[in-house]
Write a protein that binds this DNA or RNA. Structure first.
Length: 472
RNA sequence: GGCGUCGUGGCGGAGUGGUCACGCAGCGGACUGCAAAUCCGUGUACCCGAGUUCGAUUCUCGGCGACGCCUCCA
């Protein structure tokens, strides 16, 4: 059996996947800070690791997938205050919204979804260990800081040296900080802020420590895969390594995976640039599967450019697959052929989804050829293989006819939705009328009907079994 | 300034030391009453310069350019 190779950010190279426990992958992926809606950048990360999870399972692994929720931090506190809303109400609202977005995108629920506020005891215990081990120190105000210089491997993940970091440090030195790079583990509460009791007084966790504490609590102090967006590499993941290794004296994570950004006009989609689109504003006009196809059209580590044209192309390539599946009933036990081998080889090679998608396209071609040759049995077998493989990455989950005869509301330039398109009943009636005209060889009339429908977004196609229609 | 990633045909996007990605768009053909879909065919693509090599888009070095991280960020 071939093995899966994964690019490990820690070593910078592709390595065969190994698991500490045979056949069981333990994977932690950094999730959201819940003070706002998910945007397309979050969607990419969610989809990428959803595909990783699905593929590992497809390859026979049991997967324990943890995706945390950061439900306490500065931005949450600030946003709640801004809104005049309690922190709990704010975070519950955006957690629910995130779950809705995930469901819409077909992103499976991970096995565990721990929230920082539910793990304060573990966090406090870990900070205590770090102090005991000499890696952390409490300062007068009530903050506890991590002493970066104490940790040998600091900077290994992000390829940074302490000296370089200090030279470029833009952070002002807090009083009490022994080193400008030291980061906070426990933050003293200001009046009115949510706070938990601790040996260092009332306060709350720093950002990085929650992931260390929760991953260790749920997956152990040494596990297989840790993932997240590229922007988390430094300082977040670097700090996680420093914390967990120093507290537990273990190796922590074997394979680090980082997905690339979603760009808009070649610039990173981000809150500060204001060039982001939320999942919920985009999804009504874009079928979720198109979003997934778009994300998978490029390799997860590279950048991907979010644009109408690229989404359109993703839609078109997906449509080609659905058109191929039209009028074919897939056989029941799936027979795996050459396409499966290609698909598997691609996915085994660091989840090369563009290559895997190419295998699906090749399969669609064979399927079309079989259909053209009238070889229904072969077509049925190929269709089954196509649906099965696509399903592994969460695609082609719809009935082809249903997919081709549905479309999201078209948004016009002014933000309004386009006038309603003809419904199925009306289209069927017109198709009937056109059929009658064709039978009478009144092609002028039949073409008039077809052109009129096309002008309203409906495409008619004459085939051996009659006329079918779809939106375009 | 430090560190890093990347630069492939009209567009998107894989990949490889010497045959082939794949999709979108275009063109020619088959099919069709005409279309659409489909199939077949079609593009002197690999940022620039030097080096290694029988041979480099692929390896090495240098340059240019884009982007990212170094502060919260998926």
């Amino acid at each position: 059996m071939s093995t899966i190779a994964i690019h490990n950010s820690l070593t910078g190279r592709k390595e065969p996947l190994t698991t500490l426990e045979p056949g069981h992958v333990r994977m932690y992926v950094c999730g959201m800070t819940v003070y706002d809606f998910c945007h397309v950048g979050h969607a990419r990360s969610l989809i990428v690791f959803d595909v990783v999870r699905r593929y590992l399972r497809h390859r026979g692994y049991r997967v324990t997938h943890v995706r945390n929720i950061t439900d306490i931090d500065d931005k949450i506190i600030a946003r709640a205050a801004e809104n005049g809303e309690s922190i709990g109400a704010l975070t519950e609202r955006f957690i629910a919204a995130m779950h809705e977005d995930c469901a819409a995108l077909g992103v499976e629920r991970p096995e565990h979804e721990p929230r920082a506020t539910e793990y304060v005891a573990e966090i406090v215990a870990m900070i205590g260990k770090l102090i005991a081990n000499g890696y952390a120190y409490a300062v007068a105000g009530g903050d506890v800081l991590y002493s970066v210089a104490k940790f040998d491997g600091y900077g290994r993940l992000s390829g940074k040296r302490l000296a370089d970091l200090r030279a470029g440090a833009r952070v002002e030195v807090d009083e009490g900080k022994r080193d400008p790079l030291d980061f906070v583990l426990w933050k003293r509460a200001k009046p009115g802020e949510p706070a938990w009791d601790s040996p260092w007084g009332l306060g709350r966790p720093g950002w990085h420590i929650e992931c260390s504490a929760m991953s260790v609590a749920l997956l152990g102090d040494h596990f297989d895969i840790h993932g997240g967006g590229m922007d988390l590499k430094f300082p977040h993941h670097e700090n996680e390594i420093a914390q967990t290794c120093a507290a537990c004296g273990s190796k922590f994570v074997d394979t680090w995976m980082h997905n690339g950004f979603v760009n808009v006009n070649a610039e990173k989609m981000s809150k500060s640039l204001g060039n982001f689109f939320t999942v919920r504003e985009v999804l009504p006009h874009l079928r979720p599967e198109v979003m997934r196809a778009f994300v998978l059209s490029s390799h997860y580590r590279g950048p991907i450019n979010y644009s109408d044209d690229n989404l359109r192309q993703a839609d078109a390539s997906l449509e080609r697959l659905y058109v191929a599946l039209r009028d074919v009933v897939p056989t029941s036990p799936v027979v795996h052929g050459a396409a499966t081998e290609k698909f598997k080889a691609a996915m085994d090679d660091d989840f090369n989804t563009p290559e895997a998608l190419a295998a699906l396209q090749a399969l669609a071609r064979d399927l079309n050829v079989a259909k053209g040759a009238g070889d229904g049995a072969k077509a049925a077998v190929l269709a089954a293989e196509l649906v099965c493989l696509a399903g592994v990455v969460g695609l082609l989950g719809h009935e082809p006819e249903a997919w081709l005869r549905t479309r999201p509301a078209k948004v016009l330039g002014d933000g309004t939705t386009a006038a309603a398109e003809p419904d199925a009943a009306e289209i069927d009636a017109l198709v009937e009328a056109r059929m009658a005209a064709r039978k009478a060889r009144d092609f002028k009339e039949s073409d008039r009907i077809r052109d009129a429908l096309l002008a309203r977004g409906v495409l008619l196609e004459d085939g051996p079994q009659g006329t079918s229609w779809r939106y375009r």
